[in-house]
C-alpha cells in the first residue's frame, strides 16, 4: 500500500554499540552540567494557566435564568438545583463528582456560570465537597504558598520556563455567550390541556393562565417579553405542543 514506510530497527555492531553507549553517557554528562530543567516548583511557584482553564466554577445569581441546563447537561450529575429563598432554583455543585468538563458553563446561555483557575484544593472530608449556591457566588480563598508564576514558553528551539515575580491571578472575567434570543410558543393550541404545567415550571413568569369560571375557559398566555427561552415549558409540556422559536428582530 502506498504511504507506508517500513521501519527497520537498527542492527548494532560493536562500534555502533560503543557509539551509542558514548551517546548515552555523553547525554547524561551534558545534562549534569547544563541541565534542561523543566520543573515548576509548586507550591513555591505556580504554573500560569490559560484564561480558558477549567477550574472551580463561580456563579452569578443575577444572570441565572434557572433553566436547569447546567444540571441536565452535567455528565456526572454533580450539579443539582436548590430552591433559593426567592423561589428560584439555583445550581449547587458537588466537587466530589464534578469532572470539570465545563459543559455547564458552555450550556449556560445567561452566562451566569464562569470559570476560575482554582484547581489545587484538598478537602478533609468528602461531605465538605458539596458546594452550595451561597458559596459559589464570591471567589473563594485558597491556601496559596506561591510567590512567583511560571509560564511555559515554547519557542522554535525548546521549551523554556519563564518566571515572573508576581502571582498569577486566579479569577478571570467571564466571557458572555453570544445572545440568541428564543421564546417558547404553542404550535397546536387546540391540543392544549390547560394543565398549567408551563406556568408552574416557568421561572420567569412568562407563562400564565387565568381560569374564567363563568365561561369555563382558561386563558393561556406566554409573554414573549418575559420569556427567557429557557425551554423548560417546552420540555415539560405534557402534550409536547410548545416549541422554542427564534425571536424575529
Amino acid at each position: 500500500m502506498s504511504g507506508m514506510k517500513k521501519v527497520v530497527a537498527p542492527e548494532y555492531n560493536l562500534s555502533d554499540k560503543i557509539k551509542t553507549h558514548a551517546y548515552a553517557i555523553g547525554t547524561a554528562m551534558e545534562e549534569s552540567v547544563y541541565p534542561h530543567t523543566a520543573t515548576v516548583l509548586y507550591p513555591r511557584e505556580k504554573k500560569k494557566m490559560p484564561d480558558n482553564f477549567r477550574g472551580y466554577i463561580l456563579f452569578d445569581p443575577d444572570k441565572c435564568i434557572s433553566c436547569f441546563n447546567c444540571s441536565f447537561v452535567c455528565p456526572a450529575n454533580a450539579i443539582r438545583m436548590k430552591e433559593a429563598p426567592n423561589n428560584r432554583y439555583y445550581p449547587t455543585i458537588d466537587y466530589g463528582k464534578c469532572i470539570f468538563c465545563h459543559f455547564c458553563i458552555d450550556s449556560c446561555s445567561g452566562g451566569a456560570l464562569r470559570t476560575t483557575k482554582i484547581h489545587d484544593v484538598a478537602y478533609k472530608d468528602v461531605d465538605e465537597m458539596f458546594t452550595s449556591t451561597e458559596e459559589m457566588i464570591e471567589p473563594p480563598e485558597i491556601i496559596r504558598e506561591d510567590k512567583k508564576s511560571v509560564e511555559y514558553v515554547i519557542d522554535e528551539t525548546d521549551l523554556h520556563l519563564k518566571r515572573k515575580k508576581e502571582r498569577d491571578g486566579l479569577f478571570v472575567e467571564a466571557v458572555p455567550p453570544v445572545e440568541i434570543p428564543m421564546v417558547s410558543q404553542c404550535v397546536d393550541r387546540g391540543s392544549c390541556l390547560a394543565c398549567k404545567i408551563c406556568e408552574r415550571v416557568c421561572e420567569s413568569g412568562a407563562a400564565s393562565s387565568v381560569v374564567e369560571e363563568a365561561t369555563m375557559t382558561v386563558k393561556m398566555a406566554i409573554d414573549a417579553e418575559k420569556c427567557t427561552g429557557c425551554g423548560l415549558c417546552v420540555k415539560e409540556c405534557s402534550m409536547q405542543i410548545l416549541r422554542l422559536v427564534r425571536v424575529r428582530k
Binding site: 547524561a28 545534562e31 549534569s32 541541565p35 534542561h36 530543567t37 523543566a38 520543573t39 516548583l41 513555591r44
Partner: peptide, 17 residues
C-alpha cells in the same frame, strides 16, 4: 540531586530549601 539534574528536574528541595 545529581540524578534529578540529569533528568531535568530538581530533586529533594523543599526541606531546608
Amino acid at each position: 540531586k545529581l540524578c534529578a539534574r540529569i533528568q531535568w528536574r530538581v530533586g529533594p528541595h523543599e526541606i531546608v530549601w
